[in-house]
Design a protein around this nucleic acid. Structure first.
Length: 775
DNA sequence: CAGTGAGCGAGCTTCCGCTTGACTT
């Protein structure tokens, strides 16, 4: 029977460690936190020094039961949870929940899951650090107080079911502040000049004009001057340069790169990484550390030497730039550098490849480059052209990996410049001046928001993904697809001595997967900033973190710290509840000329809406705003249109025909059926006439008929239908995919039943818009 | 991936952080 019980947080970790320790050890997992504050408002006894009442979480009852059994049959319990604030607290909760005796309990820590690290830890046990635990309790209690005091204020003053918190509310603010910058952005443009010249040997050199001109007239004047000018190479300079690899991945940088290079959402990155971790292929994926263990450094070095040669090896230690980092783990890296591929799903293969290359590159030599700059003059002007070239003389880490960039304007393609000599005369081929607009600052992506949060020290590796989904699920933030708008720009071309000009068109502002605030997000944010500005400050978390650090170092008492925060906070909460105006984002747009009634927009029980008639009117009417409409930007004409629908067109076959606009665009409804009105047609729900609607209904019937491939006699509600992506089975309301390569004509009743059976849909992983259901 | 589409409200919502599995709308 084992005499020693080791408890860690993760079951995958437990399995690995058990392999390192002898037969006398059994290793179990706590599956993260085991106790927490209960849900209600009585979890913290505010009058009694903020005394928290903890409760074993529902899903951990069985875990505790199992652990208790193990404790009984063990002589020594080793608490091996992570060495950070949360990990220390888990150990303390384990002591409490399992009623561990000090003489049989040892606390050990390690930062890497390697055999030497674990054996060393076993030799250096300590007790639970109560100061660190207290810092965690302060963190937990502060978050509960902030969240559970602020949220009800929002229920009362804005809308039911909303939420606020130390992390999410600042996350939303970051998006909204950026949106305000974008709104304030004034379109401006400059003319950028690019010349193509020929060397004496006839090779093309592309060079950019040093100056950008403010107006077309100035650009034209310059091109005029060029048309009668000659050009020579005025200066030629070549100097060596170096590039260094970036550190191996943390959670945050993994999410960013997987977003940039693989197009993964942060949530997708984390679940793929979890699978790789469980398969034992990568180290722990929720980490803020850039450190690699000695064992890893050796592994990387030999993999690099084998794959690329000794000259590519360079051992490096990276230092964390993130001062908030708790570094309880290693950086994210392959557990075996010898394996540069992983056989799994395609997502797993891609993410593993990325992790392997990033970690390998971090231990490789600098890349060496030669940068050449040629300056070309203009005889009739003092302006200059500059040509830049770059040659890699030694690839180093670039052989494996180059970090992606968020900069959308990064279009500098550099290569080798042709041979030139100083003073060489150049023949002008073309000079083109193009009007270029200055873009507004970019909207955040999920991953760039994570980067910003990390910089501000807000949130932890384990919460970035869930914070992103919370602010979307609450309806504060959205990812609207924008088609972009067309914009004209001017192009002036000098070819030989011929000057011409034209107007071209570009699309600007097309966006996908960019975060933008909703009306509710904006109203909530403005309200919180007005009444609780200090908590909404970007550095609120950083400031309280400093106080937690004081508690952790034993220099301060957690109750005092919480009291100092809570007392004035509570006064503000009460004052706001009593005195603050309801915040609804209300805008009175004017009066409906037809009915003479007032029309306004505001946040209603179900979100943004328009209201025709005053609050005390008997026959006031309501309508939700449509997709793309916002409280701030909707016009009275647009709002009035909302009340023109639904329109009753009359009857067909004795049933009403109605047009309206739904979540998925305009439609005609007849006899319980919906017929979408297609885009890019002249049909419009506001003007559609009955005859045309009947045509649409008949066309839809014909199309449905044509798509119907088979009806099963056994049950007429089961059919095979030709869909947009090929045939599928429709059984009542559920749709069932036909496996690839299977011919639908061969599907008989039995096979159909089989497919319906096995395809009974797994729970949708799609986000719940607006509503969050509890489990 | 295929379908979908209202209601202006009678009673409950919410935090952050640590971990994995999990049902029924």
């Amino acid at each position: 029977m084992p005499k020693n019980l080791v408890i860690v947080e993760s079951p995958a970790k437990a399995k690995t460690i058990e392999g390192y320790l002898g037969k006398d050890f059994v290793v179990k997992s706590s599956f993260g936190h085991i106790r927490d504050l209960p849900k209600g408002n009585k979890a913290i006894d505010i009058e009694n020094g903020f005394e928290p009442k903890y409760e074993i979480s529902a899903d951990k009852k069985q875990v505790i039961k199992d652990l208790k059994k193990e404790v009984k049959s063990s002589k020594v319990v080793w608490l091996a949870t992570d060495e950070d604030r949360e990990g220390e607290a888990i150990s303390w909760h384990l002591v409490e929940a399992l009623k561990l005796k000090p003489e049989n309990t040892k606390r050990i820590v390690f930062h890497e899951i390697t055999k030497p690290a674990i054996l060393k830890a076993i030799e250096n046990p300590r007790g639970v650090n109560k100061n660190l635990v207290d810092a965690q309790q302060a963190r937990r209690i502060l978050d509960r107080l902030v969240g559970f005091e602020l949220s009800p204020v929002l229920w009362k003053k804005v809308k039911q079911g909303l939420s606020a918190g130390r992390v999410q509310s600042v996350g939303v603010r970051i998006i909204i502040d950026r949106e305000r910058e974008i709104e304030a952005h004034v379109a401006s443009s400059k003319f950028r000049v690019v010349g193509e010249f020929l060397t004496q040997a006839g090779k093309i050199v592309k060079a950019e004009g040093k100056k950008r001109f403010d107006s077309e007239d100035e650009a034209q004047a310059f091109l005029d001057a060029c048309s009668t000018s000659s050009h020579t190479v005025k200066a030629l300079e070549t100097k060596p340069a170096k590039k260094q690899p970036t550190a191996p991945f943390t959670t945050s940088t993994l999410q960013q790169e997987a977003s940039r290079k693989l197009g993964f959402s942060v949530q997708r990155t984390m679940s793929v990484a979890q699978k790789l971790y469980e398969a034992g292929r990568i180290t722990y994926m929720r980490t803020d550390s850039v450190t690699l263990s000695d064992q890893a450094l050796d592994g990387a070095a030999s993999a690099i030497a084998n794959n690329y040669g000794d000259e590519y090896c360079q051992r490096r230690n990276f230092i964390n730039k993130n001062s908030n980092a708790q570094e309880a783990h290693e950086a994210i890296r392959p557990t075996d550098f010898g394996l540069n591929k992983h056989n799994g799903t395609s997502d797993q293969e891609k993410l593993y490849g990325l992790i392997w290359r990033r970690a390998i590159a971090s231990q490789m030599a600098d890349a060496r480059l030669e940068k050449t700059t040629a300056t070309i003059d203009v005889s009739n002007s003092s302006e200059l052209f500059v040509a830049k070239g770059e040659v890699i003389t030694f690839e180093g880490f670039l052989k494996v990996y180059l970090e992606g960039t968020d900069d959308e304007n990064d279009d500098e393609a550099k290569g080798l410049l042709p041979a030139m000599t100083q003073g060489e005369s150049m023949n002008r081929k073309t000079i083109i001046a193009t009007q270029r607009f200055v873009n507004h600052p970019p909207r955040y992506t999920e991953a760039s928001l994570v980067k910003k949060l990390e910089e501000l020290g807000i949130g932890r590796p384990s919460t970035y993904a869930s914070t992103i989904s919370v602010i979307q699920n609450r309806g504060y933030i959205d990812m609207p697809e924008r088609d972009g708008t067309k914009r004209d720009y001017r192009v002036l071309t000098l070819e030989g001595s011929e000057l011409s000009s034209k107007t071209s068109t570009e699309t600007t502002g097309a966006e996908k997967n960019k975060l933008a605030p909703t009306d509710i997000g904006i109203v909530v944010n403005d309200f919180l900033i007005e009444h609780f500005g200090d908590i909404l400050e970007y550095n609120f978390t950083a400031d309280v973190e400093k106080k937690f650090d004081v508690i952790a170092s034993g220099q301060g008492n957690w109750q005092d710290m919480i009291k100092e925060f809570y007392n004035p906070f509570k006064v503000k909460v009460d004052d706001t509840l009593k005195n603050a105006e309801r915040a609804s984002g209300e805008r009175i747009l004017g009066v409906d000329p037809e009915s003479g009634k007032q029309i306004l927009v505001r946040i209603g029980r179900y979100g943004p809406m328009a209201q025709l008639g005053k609050a005390d009117d008997e026959d006031k009417r309501f309508s939700s705003l449509r997709k793309g409409q916002t409280l701030e930007s909707i016009t009275i004409d647009q709002a009035l249109l909302l009340f023109k629908l639904p329109r009753n067109l009359g009857e067909f076959e004795g049933k009403k025909v109605v047009t309206d606009i739904g979540r998925f665009g305009p439609y005609v409804r007849h006899d319980g059926k919906f017929i979408s009105i297609k885009k890019d047609t002249d049909d419009d729900p506001y003007t559609l006439v009955l005859d045309r609607a009947v045509e649409l209904i008949k066309a839809k019937r014909a199309a449905d008929e044509a798509a119907l491939l088979k009806v099963f006699e056994e049950d007429e509600t089961v059919r095979i239908i030709e869909g947009r992506w090929g045939p599928y089975i429709k059984a009542g309301k559920t749709n069932v995919k036909i496996p690839k390569g299977e011919d639908y004509t061969t599907i008989d009743w039995e096979r159909a039943q089989e497919l319906i059976e096995t395809n009974s849909k797994p729970p949708s992983t799609k986000r719940n818009r607006g509503k969050v259901k509890k489990k």
